[in-house]
């Protein structure tokens, strides 16, 4: 439909063309920034992964090695260990967080005195900066002076103090406990929003028909909560796969818990291997891309 351009009545062109132009104009600053800060560095990292190059010398001295870094990556046991650690950490933490988050959401969804207070308390672990909560837990896990050893001995769960963050068998459970504490509230909040969207009439009808509360949960709550549950799961899984801060601070770079992000940064920055480190980070990028692709397909199936 040809219309007068409101800004310049002498020139005529279609409203939709004018709108598209305006939209792109509005998007330009954001797109420029994102190209500069996301697309370009991503491409640059991939490019660097084909070279042997040190981070210490500027301007960079590049030696072309082709796919050698990727060949080395494929047979690097520390890299595969970090992939394994990250996957185990993700599956167990997100599993606990989902079950616990659902329980908390159901608890807070029921009506009782002081419900607002509990909802507020739920935001506390989420609101504490990640670095701060990591240091808090690291201190609580201290082998000699830590409060967790003291509490567990008082509760007769353990007999002697444990070196939670040094014992290979204990450090993974320890960091999972920290992650569960930090992120379950977020899970619970999303699920709570989902629960509040379920019409109350459904439960009333079910009660009239004599359905038990267990039946009500599996026949009404769970199916209707599925979309929220799926979204919460996907977001948490993504976060867990990218984990850096918490494990880096609580457990350091020890092999038992090193994650993909920590290993990539160690190679890139601590060891200064800009080429090999970029291959590691590209490897991680590909693993996450695979996960996101699977997720988008699942979501599409789910929506249809």
């Amino acid at each position: 439909m040809p219309l007068k351009n409101p800004r310049n009545p002498n020139r005529r062109y279609s409203l939709s063309a004018w709108r598209a132009r305006t939209a792109w104009l509005l998007l330009t600053p954001s797109l420029l920034i994102l190209v500069l800060v996301a697309a370009f560095p991503l491409f640059r990292s991939f490019q660097l992964s084909l070279f042997d190059v040190s981070i210490l010398k500027f301007p960079l001295q590049l030696t072309w090695v082709g796919l050698d870094n990727y060949v080395a990556l494929a047979s690097d046991p520390r890299w595969w260990r970090s992939v394994w650690n990250t996957v185990v950490f993700t599956v167990i933490s997100v599993g606990f967080e989902t079950v616990l988050g659902l329980m908390i959401a159901l608890l807070v969804h029921s009506e009782f005195k002081g419900r607002g207070l509990v909802r507020t308390a739920m935001l506390v672990p989420w609101a504490i900066p990640g670095v701060v909560s990591s240091q808090m837990w690291r201190w609580m896990f201290n082998d000699v002076y830590g409060v967790i050893n003291d509490l567990f001995i008082k509760l007769r769960l353990i007999k002697t103090p444990m070196a939670w963050l040094a014992e290979p068998a204990l450090v993974l459970p320890a960091i999972i406990a920290v992650d569960v504490w930090k992120t379950t509230p977020f899970m619970a909040l999303i699920l709570l929003a989902g629960l509040q969207g379920i019409p109350k009439e459904l439960y009333e009808a079910a009660r009239v028909d004599g359905a038990s509360s267990v039946q009500q949960f599996w026949r009404i709550t769970f199916p209707l909560l599925r979309p929220s549950l799926l979204v919460a799961l996907i977001f948490r899984t993504l976060d867990a796969l990218r984990v850096f801060d918490m494990i880096y601070i609580v457990a350091g770079t020890q092999i038992e818990t090193i994650s993909m992000s920590i290993y990539a940064r160690q190679q890139l920055i601590s060891f200064g291997l800009l080429g090999y480190g970029s291959a590691v980070s590209t490897g991680m990028f590909l693993i996450l891309a695979l996960y996101i692709a699977v997720y988008l397909v699942t979501l599409k199936v789910e929506v249809k």
Partner: peptide, 8 residues
């Protein structure tokens, strides 16, 4: 995407 993949 992980911020680590653009770090280098």
């Amino acid at each position: 995407f992980p911020s680590i993949s653009v770090l280098g």
